[in-house]
Nucleic acid binder design. Structure first.
Lengths: 178, 178
DNA sequence: AGGTCTCCCGAATGAAATTCGGTGCAGACG
DNA sequence: CGTCTGCACCGAATTTCATTCGGGAGACCT
């Protein structure tokens, strides 16, 4: 378990006086239980959630709202089968920029998430600058995506595309970084 | 293949008469609107959802349930800030297996999602067999993760770790493949 | 036409979310 | 040492919502 009483990173923020996100800097065990439950099923009734974590429904509601207000819970999303929405083929595309200036980074960074079929964008350390997780209708659509959106982008120097055979579930707690 | 069970290509199953998963094989515009809305906010009240997509609440409820039963909506998850739960550092780890036998694949495939901090697992085409998206508490934890869980795994030949500076949101419709 | 199947709606019922006033505890302060 | 203040919590009351059920319209087949 990664319990460590009051959260690894919250500690360094506890001293910060007026951080708007930090009315109560650390999350406690009840918060963690709420997060874990909602990460597994975001639609669990507040009633049931309250009982599961051992507090009153009204308190539970306040906790959940606080977690959202503090940005710890970023939102509630439906998980959708990619194939069912016309994206049966997925790929990881490594992107290297021509120059690592702030302008080029910003340019690509803002454009990438808006490209059609982009599921996730990672700004990477190392020789490749960005990693794009994309879903497409098929091989032709993948080629078109790369040619139309990436290799023609002024900031892009080169790309490398790797097909995904299968995605296996992990702990999908995560929010994207914005 | 990515999840080829029922939804890969609804088209080819449409003619099949009594496929239990296929009372109505394809999704229509209303379904898509429902999916889009719930992907954005899984907790939107059924009432509001119905109005947003232009159908009656009772019908909407039936639609959502059908989408779940057919496996098109895989679940509802809370998106959580990784740093808030003690995982401020993320990385992508490419894993190459010693031999590409079915046994080794199965062995790693079943073990990987259970490793602590694993957020997503991709079975890749190409020279690297798996790609792991992990979240950890810090550099030391990352090293420990690789050493303890990967390089010591009998099926693993080599790994390559790339740090993630930042994750930028995309269309996060997606479910993991199982 | 007639029959059947599917999908849809709207009202009624039961369950849930949400609000609000009050209570107890902890730390600050006189 | 007593008191005051702030905070988190709770439980009942209210409102909003989910869910069920009976019935109707359209498509399709015979």
């Amino acid at each position: 378990m990664l319990s460590c009483k009051s959260t690894v990173s919250a500690g360094i923020l506890e001293g910060v006086p007026n951080n708007p996100q930090n009315r109560r800097a650390s999350i406690d065990d009840v918060d963690r239980a709420i997060i874990r439950t909602l990460a597994g099923n975001a639609r669990v009734p507040n009633n049931a959630l309250a009982e599961a974590v051992g507090i009153a429904p009204s308190t539970c509601l306040a906790r959940v709202r606080a977690l959202q207000d503090r940005g710890i819970i970023r939102g509630f999303r439906a998980e959708v089968d990619p194939a069912a929405i016309g994206l049966p083929l997925q790929a990881m595309i490594s992107v290297r920029l021509r120059a690592h200036t702030r302008e080029q980074n910003e340019s690509f960074r803002s454009a990438a998430p808006e490209l059609p079929g982009v599921l996730a964008v990672f700004h990477m350390a190392g020789s490749d600058d960005y990693l794009l997780h994309v879903g497409v209708a098929g091989p032709e659509a993948l080629r078109d995506f790369v040619v139309d959106n990436l290799t023609t982008h002024p900031a892009v120097a080169q790309t490398r595309t790797n097909l995904i055979f299968e995605q296996i579930a992990g702990r999908r707690y995560l929010a994207s970084g914005r």
